[in-house]
Write a protein that binds this DNA or RNA. Sequence first.
DNA 1: TGTTAGCACTCACTCGGAACGAGTGCTAAA
DNA 2: TTTAGCACTCGTTCCGAGTGAGTGCTAACA
Lengths: 349, 349
Amino acid sequence: MDVLTPRQKLILAAIVEDYIRSAEPVGSRTLSKHQDFQLSPATIRNEMADLEELGYLDQPHTSAGRVPSQKGYRYYVDHLATRKDIDQATLRVLRDVFQQRMNEVERVIQQTATVLSQLTQYASIALGPMIHQQHIRHIQLVPLGGCSAVAILVTDTGHVENRHVTLPEDIPPGEVVRMVNLLNAKLVGTSLAHLRSHLYQEIATEMAHTLERYEDAISVLDQLSETVVNGPAQVYVGGVTNMLGQPEFRDVEKVRPVLELLESADWRRALDVVPLTGPGVQVRIGQENPVENLQDCTVVSATYMVAGVPVGSIGVIGPTRMNYARVMRILEYTAGALTRLMTERLTGS
Amino acid sequence: MDVLTPRQKLILAAIVEDYIRSAEPVGSRTLSKHQDFQLSPATIRNEMADLEELGYLDQPHTSAGRVPSQKGYRYYVDHLATRKDIDQATLRVLRDVFQQRMNEVERVIQQTATVLSQLTQYASIALGPMIHQQHIRHIQLVPLGGCSAVAILVTDTGHVENRHVTLPEDIPPGEVVRMVNLLNAKLVGTSLAHLRSHLYQEIATEMAHTLERYEDAISVLDQLSETVVNGPAQVYVGGVTNMLGQPEFRDVEKVRPVLELLESADWRRALDVVPLTGPGVQVRIGQENPVENLQDCTVVSATYMVAGVPVGSIGVIGPTRMNYARVMRILEYTAGALTRLMTERLTGS
DNA sequence: TGTTAGCACTCACTCGGAACGAGTGCTAAA
DNA sequence: TTTAGCACTCGTTCCGAGTGAGTGCTAACA
């Protein structure tokens, strides 16, 4: 695979970088003026013809310059993108975000999406932490009058999940208090992923003895755990209007599928866009994306973790002509910062 | 003002309705085929010339048909739009939304935004209930370990607001419990708008006697009430991609300001778009909008209430060539349904 | 053998003029 | 007051020439 000569690599990298900057097909004359190599346009043309034959370059039409193909971008990302340090100004913006006193996890994630799109001038997506992995710290039931009440569940990372539940009609207030106490005693420390199974396997039988109306408690908890399973992770999207500024999306019909996806993204679909993987930065170029609406886009994503477990991911969505090096650096840093922040919070600030 | 002859009104209404449907300037020939009046194109041309002179119509260029001016739309909305009943299919969709068992207020509002944009094919915005008006039902403090804790506040409509707070370092657990009990005893029933003032004027002095470390309680509550004041109302936006389907926004540069506004809308800015007014439907046509980015749009909005108090609003954003009659009917119905839903919840379901 | 200069060729893009046609305003007749 | 007729306007579309950036190929050169 890696059969390119050093000079071909140099030329491919120059074409990719020039095209990322200008969004115009790169001609041989332009490249020959590049300071890095002193070659005539003709020589470069020969090399470009070879690179095109190998599939790394495309030619929109015979009398135009060359454009990197999907394969060309992939090669650039895998072998050529230089990993310079993140620039100081960018670093400062990022540091500011994470040094702010932002206690609510959701707000941090949302801010992350915003700042990612500001820094990169692309669209961004941030997936809030999957709370499956988290553990119950506290359960509370607040009656609202009538049969309705709010059930509140606090996890050990401080995430608060709440849901309205319907209480049985004639349950006395004292019983509610007892129920809550028992639930706390039995369930604090349980992982949310196991809430449901614990509920039935271990607690239910014991409750039957201790609590008069244990089916009621079960039903309430069942309603709550349904919320946890179905709607835990928030999806935040930022900078969709940045897409409108990209020349490849000048045409409304080109942007529309992308915006439609971002608009309708629930967390399940979002996971297809920014997958939960291990550490490191993922790059999906064009058709490498499993989501159809993003076949003309590149998605760069990274995963953040709590205590070594991947819980959420962030990503940047732009045209395939993307500033890969910069975006990858920024995402790497941001995911790291999020991981640190969330882990600190867990172990006690 | 209302000096139009009956025939002029008929023609103006026909032009507005035809233009709403087709998005193309309406010619005299087209109108003469309209079944409602048997007039030759020439006659209609005369009337149109008069209507243009009066400012109700615009002419893109001499050899094109007429287009309603902003004044024309305004007249149409005020005097001509027929208030037929809402059609059955639409009504069914709306009923389904509100008959669903959706307990969480936020989710109802979000669903409302989604369904509004689906039904109208325009963009929609829904402003969650201002919780200033609501009253405290319950306060809870859940320690997370170290000095951090989650403060949770439940209102009488079941809204849950939570925020991380920092506890003083060496506070004993028993004191936290006493503090929470006292806060509940003193503050339940207080309107959130008065939380801060109550806190200082009435409670603080009394607390000083009862509670050893009352400044700590104050500081915690202060942190919480800041959240209540600064970030209460959620803004939900739906169907922004619908804007891309409208011919007047074919050009990317036209949509961009609108999308930018919708993307960045916090609840303060959202209030400029969909104002909190009394009952009834508001229509702001083109430059009538106080927000600059919406000067080419029409915003139709309505307010929903809890127990007679306006707490939130919903709106539809589209081109000035909007199906006013239909959108107004839908918004009227939806706001009414929301009001009923929220009030029922308050008085006990 | 690799590099370069020269040259013919391709082809998207721009610009200007002609043809077209939807729609108007005006005038005169019904 | 309404209508038919007609000249006129003006945006839109189509076409062809001109332009220029860029290529591929060939032959000469190091």
